[in-house]
């Protein structure tokens, strides 16, 4: 709760500059990427019964054309550039007390490699999780339909699996957030940053971060389900997605920096009581 308060306070204090750094990439993402599709697939699994594996995979939204993977890769690299722009803006603000967004190319260059490594790892993780969810569900579906076991058991397995993977991903999300700080500020490599990050964690902190990252994800899920149930027009959906992406990016970056400043006990120059 402490970290959520600090993050929200920081975001509302410096809203416009953060808005300007992150709005281009949120608009781009809103057009191309649907957030958390595998969770919204629960809606289709509840609504109808699948007997053909292909229908099930289509409802899990993994059956788009194969060349989409390159589009997603390009978008991932663009996201890396813009996130590094926002990240270094906020980091320098907290470190020096001055905020400036006038040199975007310099800031993009500064943190591009750590962010690109991190986001490629997240990209591989997301694809792996989609493959696991669709693979296990398709296997159980065909097994149950060939052995004629009632369908509600399959539904229960689907709910448990998807919820478990959602919560597990949320539990793991604190690691990449904190690793960027190690990589950008202290200059570690990817694996070194990961194992150095493991030494900082303890139980109480993990619980705090679990809820701090869970709340925005739950908001996305709720918005997704309302879009699905009310069948809103396309332009409204794009607007909603833009707002959601903007807040998620801004929140997670601000959260990562405040948490690491708090854990490493670096003084924050942007807060008035530290100003001299």
């Amino acid at each position: 709760m402490k970290y959520i308060k600090m993050t929200v306070k920081y975001l509302f204090g410096n809203f416009w500059r953060v808005f300007l750094t992150l709005i281009p990439i949120s608009v781009l993402c809103a057009f191309f990427i649907k957030p958390l599709t595998s969770v919204t697939a629960l809606f289709y699994i509840t609504a109808e019964e699948f007997h053909d594996p292909k229908d099930l995979i289509e409802s899990l939204d993994f059956a788009t054309e194969w060349y989409y993977i390159f589009v997603y890769l390009a978008i991932t690299l663009l996201i890396a550039a813009f996130l590094s722009y926002a990240y270094i803006t906020m980091y320098r603000h907290m470190r020096t007390g001055k905020i400036s967004i006038r040199t975007p190319l310099r800031y993009m260059n500064g943190g591009f490699i750590p962010f690109a490594k991190m986001l490629l790892c997240i990209f591989v993780y997301i694809i792996l999780m989609q493959l696991i969810i669709s693979g296990v569900l398709v296997l159980f579906n065909s097994l149950f339909s060939s052995l004629s076991i009632p369908y509600w058991i399959f539904r229960i397995i689907a709910y448990v699996l998807i919820l478990f993977i959602f919560l597990f991903s949320n539990f793991m999300l604190k690691t990449p957030l904190m690793m960027v700080f190690h990589m950008y500020v202290y200059g570690y490599g990817l694996m070194e940053a990961w194992s150095a990050n493991g030494k900082l964690l303890h139980n109480k902190f993990s619980v705090t971060m679990f809820f701090a990252t869970l709340i925005p994800l739950l908001t996305i899920v709720a918005l997704n389900f309302t879009c699905l149930l009310l069948t809103v027009p396309y332009w409204l959906e794009i607007v909603i997605r833009t707002v959601v992406y903007f807040f998620v990016f801004a929140y997670f970056i601000a959260l990562a920096i405040t948490v690491m400043f708090d854990l490493c006990e670096i003084e924050r120059r942007d807060v008035p009581r530290y100003r001299r």
């Binding site: 594996p53 696991i132 969810i133 693979g135 296990v136 398709v138 296997l139």
Partner: peptide
Amino acid sequence: SLVVIGLCIDPIL
């Protein structure tokens, strides 16, 4: 085993 099911679903089926 979950990862194997995810990666090799086609040969398994």
